[in-house]
């Protein structure tokens, strides 16, 4: 059984603006590259962080400026854990279920353009990309937690 202690961790806090999602995405990408994670893992983590942060800004804060979104990224020997926290509106229960269990948003008919989604894809992208997802709220702070297992052999040890 591995230690619960993270090998490395970092906390990033951004303003509730969509440009902040860009900034935190680029930062997470650079961190993953620095840690020696492979391209696929790096992209998956970056994508899910961007989707989560964008959701928090767009739906949690309704695009209102003057708020914060915090991303905690912890690296363990065999996995990366990411938590995206905000103090906006909590995610509706149906969306939480979609996040945990998946949704049918990509089961569209590619020959029927009207059935192709223009939005609402982020939660399914996170569900499909991450190895573990959960969402908790205490009525004030909402925390979307994601786990990405690292492939074997991973170059992480060489970078630490």
């Amino acid at each position: 059984m591995e230690s619960a202690k993270a090998v490395k961790w970092i906390r990033l806090t951004i303003a509730s603006e969509l440009e902040g999602a860009t900034l935190v995405g680029q930062s997470v990408h650079a961190i993953c590259v620095h840690l020696g994670l492979d391209e696929t893992t790096t992209f998956g983590i970056e994508l899910c962080v961007v989707e989560s942060v964008t959701n928090a800004i767009r739906h949690g804060y309704k695009l209102a400026a003057g708020n914060e979104v915090t991303v905690n990224l912890a690296v363990f020997d065999t996995r990366v854990e990411v938590e995206v926290a905000d103090e906006g509106l909590s995610m509706p229960e149906a969306n939480v279920q979609a996040l945990r269990q998946g949704s049918s948003v990509f089961d569209f008919d590619e020959n029927d353009l009207d059935s192709v989604p223009e939005g609402g894809m982020g939660l399914q992208i996170i569900h499909a990309t991450m190895d573990g997802v959960d969402y908790v709220t205490d009525g004030k702070t909402n925390r979307l937690r994601m786990v990405k297992n690292l492939p074997e052999p991973e170059a992480l040890h060489a970078a630490v």
Partner: peptide
Amino acid sequence: GFVDSSGLGALVSVLK
């Protein structure tokens, strides 16, 4: 080098 679901959604909207 990077596209998220919002970017894709914009392209779908243009297509429609």
